[in-house]
C-alpha cells in the first residue's frame, strides 16, 4: 500500500513530470517563470488547488457522475473555477500579503491545463481518495520543481550574451527541451511508472 503510494508520488514528480513530459501547464511555465521567488509561490498555490480539485473530483466522480458521465467535463471545469475563486477569497481575507505577492497568477490557475488533466487522469486511472491526494501532491511538486528550475535558468540567461533573435520564447523552448531531455533520465525508475 505504502509502496504503491510512493510509486504514484515519485512517478508524478519525476518520471511523468506534468510540465516536462506531458506538456501541461506550459503557459505559466513560459509566461511567468522569470523570477525564482514568484515561481516558487505560484507552485505552492498550484499544489493547493490541485489537492482540493483532486478531492472534489473524486467525490463528484464517486457520487454524482456515475449517473451522468457525459457531464464530467463541465462538472470538473466548474469545480476548478469555483475552487480557484474560493482560494482567492480566503487568501485575500486571511493573508493579504501573500495575496498581493501572487497577484494575477492566482486567478490564472483556472486555465492551467494541469489542474483539469489531474482530475481526468485520476478518474481514468481509477485512483481512490488517498491515491488521488498523493497524485495531486506529486504532480504539484513536479510543477513547482519545473517552474523553479526554469526560473533559475532564465535568471542566469538574462545575464549572458545571447543573440537578439534567440531572446525570449525561442530560447525558453530550447532550454525546456534540454531540461526535458534530462528528465528522461528518470524514465527507467519504475518501468515507466
Amino acid at each position: 500500500m505504502t509502496a504503491g503510494l510512493l510509486t504514484i508520488f515519485v512517478s508524478a514528480l519525476l518520471v511523468n513530470n506534468f510540465t516536462l513530459s506531458y506538456f501541461l501547464g506550459l503557459c505559466p511555465f513560459f509566461g511567468v517563470s522569470g523570477r525564482l521567488q514568484t515561481a516558487f509561490r505560484l507552485g505552492l498555490a498550484n499544489i493547493f488547488v490541485l489537492v482540493i480539485t483532486s478531492v472534489a473530483a473524486w467525490a463528484l466522480h464517486r457520487f454524482v457522475l456515475v449517473h451522468a458521465p457525459y457531464l464530467t467535463l463541465i462538472a470538473y471545469i466548474l469545480v476548478i473555477a469555483s475552487t480557484v475563486q474560493f482560494v482567492e477569497m480566503v487568501i485575500k481575507k486571511t493573508l493579504p500579503a501573500l495575496f498581493r505577492a501572487l497577484g494575477i497568477y492566482l486567478p490564472l490557475i483556472t486555465t492551467n491545463c494541469a489542474i483539469l488533466a489531474l482530475a481526468l487522469f485520476q478518474t481514468s486511472r481509477g485512483y481512490d481518495l488517498l491515491e488521488g491526494i498523493v497524485f495531486a501532491l506529486g504532480a504539484g511538486a513536479g510543477l513547482t520543481l519545473a517552474l523553479v528550475l526554469m526560473a533559475g535558468l532564465r535568471e542566469e540567461a538574462e545575464l549572458s550574451d545571447v543573440p537578439a533573435l534567440l531572446r525570449g520564447t525561442a530560447m525558453s523552448f530550447l532550454v525546456a527541451g534540454v531540461l526535458s531531455l534530462a528528465f528522461m533520465g528518470f524514465a527507467g525508475l519504475f518501468g515507466g511508472g
Partner: peptide, 15 residues
C-alpha cells in the same frame, strides 16, 4: 518524437 523533441522543434520553428 519523444517529449524533448517537441520543445526543440517548436523552439527552432519559433526562431
Amino acid at each position: 518524437i519523444l517529449p524533448p523533441g517537441g520543445f526543440l522543434v517548436v523552439g527552432a520553428l519559433l526562431l
